[in-house]
Design a protein around this nucleic acid. Structure first.
Lengths: 192, 192
DNA sequence: CACCGTATTTGCACCCGGTGCACTTTGGAA
DNA sequence: TTCCAAAGTGCACCGGGTGCAAATACGGTG
């Protein structure tokens, strides 16, 4: 009897050794002592291995957002929750880095991640919709959600490239950078 | 002797008939009167069919950005170019819609699109870097690029869902919505 | 027209991820 | 011990994609 977590461990080790693309599902199954077919009882696809229990993470993000103080401006809430959502205990940091390096570094997984990020964005959009009194799939909430994901990805990529940096700092900074960029065009809200 | 454009046409017709996923490369090849193997001389993958000459598009975007007036605030330049880049002649509009509905609507293609959008983002990041005097892969330019792509995607998704709307209007509006969202938290630039 | 070199096209064998299905094994609970 | 459900497995199959070598088409030269 194995578990998804054990399989993940075995798989990650192989990925480190020979790379993601040249590790086959058969390799993983063999290393874990199960049949190839059985692997697909634990993960819907090879691309899903690095994602862990993402739905639980989403629930956490949703709860964090809901707990935001009512008076605070929308983007401040989002920025704050984005930072807190990505705060990981120091001892889990190497694992998190390894996981994210896979997801954001290997093209196959980059592509696959898009599908997961949709759900993530939807959480943001729903929050933005609630706070502004619009349906979540209106233009404004969707735009905010898309942009926020973009900010997060920029920060993550930077974090992965630059070993010394603090992820939470980068997320906060990225959010502020975007705000500043818009602030530099004060008449953006007005007509041309 | 066929061409990539003809193949694209044949493929799109099949996609309309039976959907993207249930159209096999063999189907396309047969309909075009070529061998399956030959298909892969025209397109590196089935997922690349809807993309046309994307590199040429990127060059156009790059040129548009470079031609922006020097005094204008950065995000205004980007917003303006984003709108102009996506202005399509009325007669090519149905084709554009069909293409984008595929790319942004079929999960397989959504995933694949990520890889193409990287290049698109890089164009924005380079422009943002130039104008602000930073390397293109600094945090700020990358954040702006990621966020801009997000804005564009939100507008496109809305456009595809809402038949009556004008794409350029949505792009412009989405960009302004994001600016407004940040403007509502005036102290964002300051420390907490 | 015959000849030749090149580029395109093709067939083939193969790899890998993924699925449907039927069968076996396992491990409790009654 | 018996029985049932869940987990595991084998197998045949599909579709995308690639490497390689043979074949075919094409344009120019003598």
């Amino acid at each position: 009897m194995t578990s998804a977590a054990e399989l993940e461990q075995v798989a990650f080790d192989l990925f480190d050794e020979q790379g993601f693309d040249s590790t086959t599902v058969s390799d993983i199954a063999r290393a874990a002592g199960i049949a190839r077919r059985t692997f697909f009882h634990y993960f819907p696809s090879k691309n899903d291995i690095p994602w862990g229990d993402f739905d639980a993470e989403l629930a956490r993000l949703r709860a964090d957002l809901r707990a935001s103080p009512a008076g605070t401006p929308l983007m401040d809430c989002i920025r704050h929750c984005l930072v807190e959502f990505n705060r990981v205990p120091r001892d889990q940091l190497p694992a998190h880095r390894r996981r994210m390096r896979l997801i954001l570094g290997i093209p196959t997984l980059q592509a696959h991640s898009t599908l997961r990020f949709q759900a993530w964005r939807q959480v943001i959009a729903e929050f933005a919709g609630e706070r502004t009194g619009h349906p979540a799939d209106d233009l404004a909430p969707q735009t905010i959600a898309h942009a926020t994901l973009g900010v997060a990805l920029a920060a993550y990529e930077r974090w992965l490239d630059e070993p010394g940096t603090e992820l939470t700092d980068l997320l906060d900074a990225a959010m502020r950078e975007l705000a500043a960029a818009f602030a530099d065009s004060p008449r953006l809200g007005a007509e041309d």
